[in-house]
């Protein structure tokens, strides 16, 4: 598909900022998202091409206004739920439980 992710040759994104040079994870959630993605692939929950397709289906405006690892998080949610590894209900319930325990505040 010719999605916003297929951005080679598009003009108007402005200069590259070579000082934006981080290679390390900026927060624990980024590191966890990276690792959980690789481990889900290793467990056969989805394949890498499905993962890339899931990211390119992110609506264009959202794609451009979210960070790299948010794209990865989006594809994890999309694929693990659509393939039935867990349900949307289980997922929302778990988020609510963790929020009640204050688990997100630490990261």
């Amino acid at each position: 598909m010719r999605s916003i992710a297929d951005m080679g040759g598009i003009q108007g994104f402005g200069p590259v900022d070579p000082a934006d040079d981080d290679t390390r994870f900026k927060a624990e959630w980024e590191a966890d998202t990276f690792a959980v993605n690789l481990l889900s692939l290793a467990a056969g929950c989805f394949n890498i091409d499905e993962s890339r397709h899931s990211m390119e289906k992110i609506p264009a405006v959202e794609y451009l206004t979210t960070t790299y690892f948010e794209h990865w998080l989006h594809s994890l949610e999309d694929l693990l739920i659509s393939k039935g590894v867990f349900s949307q209900e289980e997922y929302q319930t778990r988020i609510a439980e963790l929020a009640a325990k204050g688990a997100g505040d630490a990261a």
């Binding site: 624990e28 960070t67 867990f86 289980e90 997922y91």
Partner: peptide
């Protein structure tokens, strides 16, 4: 790893952290 996170995210960092923690614990 230290928490950073208030810089360039469209969602509060806690939401992102909650989402991946929910996925990780379910998995």
């Amino acid at each position: 790893m230290t928490a950073m996170g208030h810089d360039d995210h469209t969602l509060p960092p806690s939401s992102l952290a909650l989402r991946i923690k929910a996925i990780e614990t379910l998995m």
